[in-house]
Design a binder for these strands. Structure first.
Lengths: 237, 237
DNA sequence: GCGCTCTACATTGTTAACAATGCAAACGCA
DNA sequence: TGCGTTTGCATTGTTAACAATGTAGAGCGC
């Protein structure tokens, strides 16, 4: 068909970047809490919003469901997930297991350029906070953790952290103390200090403490399983 | 339509368990190396093998691709992934980060019943080894790690470990020393000992050592990026 | 009016036909 | 014979129609 005399790729790439793009966008909207748990994601609406066919929308929803960011109920549609208490505990347990290692690798591998990226990011975070730009602040707060995984330069960790950050946003929506929506108290800045000092142990323990602090603002009155606790449910208080 | 007088659910669940099933099966085949890297997964073949429609096959492949166990190339089809060196390093880095935490939680939470499950599993592993049942041995060796995540009772970790174990099988296929296909040297039994003693630190360090031992049998002659090393490629020897 | 049933509509799930692309074998030409 | 081209087939990608299910509202008996 087209040989040497056809140096230009015709289709460039129809590729399946389509659903990737949709997934990304929904992820972002979940992270900065523009999409709340329980929100229905109707196929028609998404088709219009992203200007893509129903097939791509359904495939995007399937990927999101496989990451437990979206729940698909047969014959009823797709909804932003509402994490159960068990799921919430699993997510933060996983974050406590993974993210200290992420930050360890990040400190080991960060170069001058990475430090600048971190600085710039923190400036933006502070700016968003000062301007009371809530969505932006939450988004940046989450993407700080993702930036660490990028500096660690590990694709598995990047993907994992992205998922866990998104789900954390949902957890905070459901169980979080009202108003408290992100790490406001500059733990992130302390972490940058640890980067500058190349102090791995410090960075790890800061991350550990940071995640526990987030967890402190979340109200998981943990029965071991997911059954409803009728006693506390009907006790006056 | 059907009200009180219809106490039985009609459809039981057409649900999307269809693609879940296909995903599971392919995962298993990858883990025990019946499916090797580069193997083409044609839609028609899978439709026949699992007796499902093309739609479900495509959706299953999409999920597998999102876990980087298969690679989908536009207009050419789906193939079992051939991990690059970078990807391989990422996978084992992630395992080293996650699995010690998994085993830590597992030891903390294991009850008598769990110990029995572990014992039974190890017996099967040994039996498979003694009978030179290679596929079975590899499968059990992988599912030991998954069993630990199940005992840890953390769904995120279960899903993560499943993915990492499957990808490890692919990595071993590509970069592993021939013949060495799994943890044969009873590190798993040592781990059970740590469970019995409820020695968390021991269990963590055993897991760490165990993963590093696997890594020792893998030949990642690591250039920092994935570009081909033409110098060594064309040097005699 | 209250509750139930039934009907009409909206949404999701599935299938099948069609379009586009890649691949391989046959052909032609030097 | 070797290389490039062409042509036909096999496979994947996309769309649109159809089937099935859920939902809301009207109708109706009590």
């Amino acid at each position: 068909m087209h040989s040497l005399k056809d140096p230009v790729k015709i289709t460039e790439s129809s590729e399946r970047a389509t659903e990737e793009r949709v997934v990304e966008q929904i992820f972002e909207a979940v992270v900065d809490q523009r999409l709340q748990p329980g929100t229905k994601l109707s196929e028609a609406a998404l088709c219009e919003a992203f200007d893509v066919g129903r097939m791509h929308v359904r495939r995007a929803l399937l990927i999101l469901a496989s990451r437990e960011v979206v729940e698909i109920i047969s014959n009823r549609g797709a909804y932003i997930a509402s994490p159960t208490e068990k799921q919430s505990r699993d997510v933060f347990e996983a974050r406590l297991a993974v993210e200290p290692s992420v930050v360890k690798l990040a400190v080991e591998r960060a170069n001058a350029e990475d430090l600048i990226r971190l600085e710039k990011h923190l400036k933006k975070e502070h700016a968003a906070h000062d301007n009371d730009n809530r969505h932006e602040a939450i988004r940046l707060s989450g993407s700080f953790h993702i930036l660490l995984a990028e500096i660690a330069n590990n694709d598995v960790m990047i993907r994992t952290v992205k998922e866990l950050v998104a789900r954390s946003s949902l957890i905070i929506s459901v169980y979080g103390a009202p108003g408290v929506s992100s790490c406001r108290d500059d733990d992130h800045t302390d972490l940058l200090e640890a980067f500058r000092k190349q102090n791995i142990d410090l960075a790890e323990s800061l991350m550990h403490a940071h995640l526990n602090k987030i967890l402190d603002h979340i109200n998981l009155n943990a029965p071991a399983n997911d059954s409803v606790d009728f006693v506390s449910l009907f006790s006056k208080g």
